[in-house]
Amino acid sequence: MEPNTTLTIFWAAVIGFAIIMYVVLDGFDLGVGILFTVVHEDEHRGVMMNSVAPVWDGNETWLVMGGGGLLATFPLAYSVLFPAIYAPLIAMLLGLAFRGVSFEYRWRATKGRFIWNAGFAGGSLLAAFCQGLALGTVLQGVEIANREYAGGWWDWLTPFSILTGLSVVSGYILLGSTWLILKTEGALQERAFGIAKVAGVVTLGFIVAVSIWTPFLGDTYFARWYSWPNILYVSPVPILVVIVAALFWRALLARQERAPFLLALVLFVITYAGLAVSMYPYIAPPTLTIFDAAAPSSSQIFLLYGAPVLLVILLCYTGYSYWVFRGKVTAKSGYH
């Protein structure tokens, strides 16, 4: 019944995959929501919302998969991490609730439309910021004793977690604006190009800031990034970030429509890989590793029967659904 080492690594990779899928997919639709704060024209807002309406629900399902999957494969991590990020987690859920119902409500409201515009923007912003807070809280370390969370209720609020919170907001704006470049045209696309430029620079600044700060949070992080010969193995991460950032800038200047979004996705994947490098094998630094937290082998094996096949199938139909709604979205004529 002991956890199996190979399976533990496999399931950690699956959970990691679910989280990055969530981050990039819901990231762009949360980013579109946040952009309601700067785009005020009703017509544009309608287009923005419609560009994500058919897919947001699927995107958010990755969050449920992350939560449910963590419970299934690393129950101890699930049970100690969530109390550690209690307040931001609940605030995130409430933010997601507000912005989730706004998709339908905005079209149903008559006088109340402004509420759901605000709910969509505010809920998206709150959810994004809280996800960043949660990331920062986990990175800076979680106190555990006797298989329970042993830290305080305000441990999540630190300068570092605020920095990661703002980073995620900025990153999601980057994803959202490049998504709009891809899906819209005319004046709105013009706005999106402008926003993407600013968001690109700001996000890069945040990446640098978090990267410099993280190694000073704990000795393991420091050793991983700055000791010889580790520095050789991890050096591709910053180098790739620089290359992708340069390509991204060039694509924006060349007014390409697809490349900015794809490169923003790549940027997220690289920085995420950087975080994984920092954390492995810890799931709740600085004490709990994936091997400590893994579910017993009977649970790991039971999931192995169905999960990989189901994952492949669901990736296929998720891709199909994106393909059905491909192309530009406009106010008058809908999807072309």
């Binding site: 629900d57 998969m65 449910g68 049970s79 579910a295 999931l303 169905g306 994952l311």
Partner: peptide, 30 residues
């Protein structure tokens, strides 16, 4: 949390299958 830690190895995989086989199906085709 304590319930999650102790019962997680049983209920977690069932909920995992719920997400993979049902939630994604609903969301993907909705």
């Amino acid at each position: 949390g304590v319930f999650a830690d102790r019962a997680g190895p049983i209920i977690g995989p069932l909920m995992g299958y719920e997400v993979l086989s049902a939630f994604f199906l609903e969301a993907g085709f909705l």
